[in-house]
Amino acid sequence: MSHTSDSKNERAWLKYSHHKRSNRSLELGEQAINLLIKKGSPITLTTIAEQSKKIDTEGKGIHPNTIRTNEQLYEYYKQHSKTYKQKNRKSNTLNSSVTLEDIKFHKIKPNRNLKNLERKYMKLSKKEIVERLILAEQYIAENNTKWVANYFEAFK
Rank of each mutant, 00 (worst) to 15 (best):
L124D: 09
L114W: 15
S52D: 04
S96F: 15
I55E: 10
K38L: 12
K120H: 12
I48H: 04
N143K: 15
N144G: 00
S81I: 11
E142M: 14
H19K: 11
I62F: 05
K39T: 07
K87I: 08
R11L: 15
S7E: 06
K127S: 13
A32Y: 09
K78H: 02
F155I: 11
D6Q: 11
Y16S: 13
G29R: 05
S81Y: 06
N70F: 01
Y76H: 07
E71C: 00
I37H: 05
N9E: 14
D6G: 14
I37Q: 14
K90R: 14
H106T: 07
S125P: 00
Y74E: 11
M122N: 10
G59L: 07
R11D: 07
A141H: 08
R11N: 07
Q31H: 04
Q31M: 15
E27Y: 03
R132W: 04
A49Q: 05
S81R: 09
S41W: 01
H3N: 15
G29S: 06
E75A: 15
N111K: 10
E30F: 03
V130M: 08
I33R: 01
K146N: 08
S22A: 13
K15P: 00
Y121V: 11
R89Q: 07
H106S: 15
E101C: 01
E30R: 14
K38N: 08
S96G: 03
I43F: 04
I37W: 03
M122F: 03
N92K: 13
A49Y: 04
S17I: 02
N95T: 13
K85E: 12
S41T: 04
R132Q: 15
E131Q: 07
M1D: 04
E118M: 14
L124R: 09
T93E: 12
L114D: 05
S91L: 15
L117H: 02
Y77W: 06
I108Q: 08
P64V: 03
S5V: 03
R11E: 14
L94A: 04
I43S: 05
E10V: 15
N150P: 00
K53E: 11
Q51W: 00
W13A: 09
K38R: 13
V98Y: 01
K20P: 00
N116G: 11
T93S: 15
L35F: 03
N150R: 14
I62S: 06
I108C: 02
S41L: 01
K127E: 11
R21I: 05
I103L: 14
H18Y: 10
N65E: 14
Y151R: 12
S97H: 11
R24F: 01
H106C: 04
K156Y: 10
G29Q: 05
M1L: 09
N143Q: 10
S97G: 02
N88L: 13
N111V: 03
Q79V: 05
H106L: 08
R21S: 09
A154P: 00
Y84M: 06
T69A: 04
E137Y: 10
S2C: 01
A136T: 12
T47D: 05
R119P: 00
K127C: 01
L35V: 00
Y77C: 03
I103M: 14
T145V: 05
H106D: 10
M1H: 09
I129K: 12
E128H: 06
L45C: 02
Q51H: 02
S25Q: 13
E137I: 07
K109G: 00
S97W: 02
H80Q: 07
R112A: 11
Q79D: 06
S17Y: 15
